[in-house]
């Protein structure tokens, strides 16, 4: 054997060596993945069947934590409250973000003067760190000293309580009874729609990919602007909308930073901004119930898994992969 490259005895077991070499190269990642992902994943599943306070060893209680979750869900306890709040937030904020994102992207794709400036302006909010944005919005939406209510006041509208109110704007019966208004979750929704720039930039890129020929063909067939949008733009954007929908739902269900900041770390007022991830945090680190918190984490995981799976199932009915079709 030619030993120009110093293979020497190494050549005795080339196949094993070949197989091991890449493992060595990825070993730092493997180590990190094992310690920081696989281990916590498995450990939290085990702990969700335990009573565990991080100090004394975990003690198996099997389904007790899950039974407690079920009880709190049924009796309207804090877990039930957190489920409702999270659901409300996701169901309102994700469609709104998609609607505004697509709308903005379409408008920003129009060739108008100052296009680049508008694009930058609308993208800017998503560069602001969540913590800073939260504090900013707390000031803007302060019911008494905030600029939003000041502007509304000039227009003769009694501004809502925003982060200090338990109202739910999308809960229509309240409006009929005269107690409707915008509350903490609606303010959080507003915040997330404001930060829609990340989604928008993806739509913009996708819009640029739509072949001109499709629009020309549609125009020749007599389609007006709306029909071109409805039957060309939207179907061509659907894979990207689908991606943003999935990411939005996952992000929304896990929303923590902004919730923690605006709700004073307690889901205030009156638990109206108690979201699942905040409840998880409080259970683990304030009530020192790591087992119970792990159970919440697993429920959270299952919700994310189930909703993602459902979205993927629905995708075949409305997502069009232009290039991939046979």
């Amino acid at each position: 054997m030619d030993d120009t490259y110093g293979l020497g005895s190494f050549s005795l077991m080339p196949s094993l060596r070949h197989r091991l070499t890449p493992l060595w190269f990825i070993s730092p990642w493997l180590l990190g993945f094992g310690l920081l992902v696989v281990y916590p994943f498995v450990a939290s599943l085990v702990w969700s069947f335990c009573r565990y306070d991080m100090l004394s060893p975990p003690e198996y209680v099997w389904l007790e934590n899950y039974a407690r979750l079920a009880d709190e869900l049924v009796s309207g306890g804090r877990f039930g409250q957190a489920m409702w709040n999270t659901g409300y937030f996701v169901l309102i904020s994700v469609p709104l973000s998609i609607g505004f994102g697509v709308g903005l992207a379409v408008m920003l794709s129009w060739r108008i003067r100052g296009q680049a400036i508008y694009r930058t302006l609308f993208f800017l909010p998503s560069v602001v760190p969540v913590a800073a944005a939260s504090v900013l919005w707390m000031w803007l939406l302060d019911p008494q000293a905030g600029i939003v209510n000041a502007v509304l006041g000039v227009a003769g509208v009694d501004g809502p309580g925003w982060f200090n109110s338990v109202s739910e704007a999308a809960w229509l019966p309240a409006w009929f009874r005269g107690i409707g208004g915008f509350g903490s979750k609606d303010a959080l929704t507003l915040m997330s729609v404001w930060g829609v720039g990340n989604f928008m930039i993806i739509y913009l890129a996708a819009l640029g990919e739509v072949p001109r020929s499709l629009y020309e063909a549609a125009e020749l067939d007599g389609a007006g602007p709306w029909r071109r949008f409805r039957h060309v733009t939207l179907p061509m954007l659907s894979p990207v909308i689908f991606f943003n929908l999935v990411m939005g739902v996952i992000g929304g269900v896990q929303a923590f930073t902004q919730v923690y900041i605006v709700s004073e770390g307690q889901g205030a007022p009156a638990g109206s901004s108690m979201m699942l991830s905040l409840y998880l945090f409080l259970s683990a680190f304030k009530d020192l119930e790591m087992g119970y918190a792990s159970a919440i984490a697993w429920v959270l995981f299952l919700i994310v898994l189930a909703s993602t799976a459902a979205l993927f199932r629905s995708a075949k009915h409305w997502v069009h992969y232009g290039g991939a079709s046979p």
């Binding site: 019911p143 905030g146 208004g181």
Partner: peptide, 13 residues
């Protein structure tokens, strides 16, 4: 209720 909540919050501002 809304006024009470808003007034209280105003203190923190």
């Amino acid at each position: 209720a809304e006024e009470v909540a808003a007034f209280r919050k105003g203190d923190q501002a």
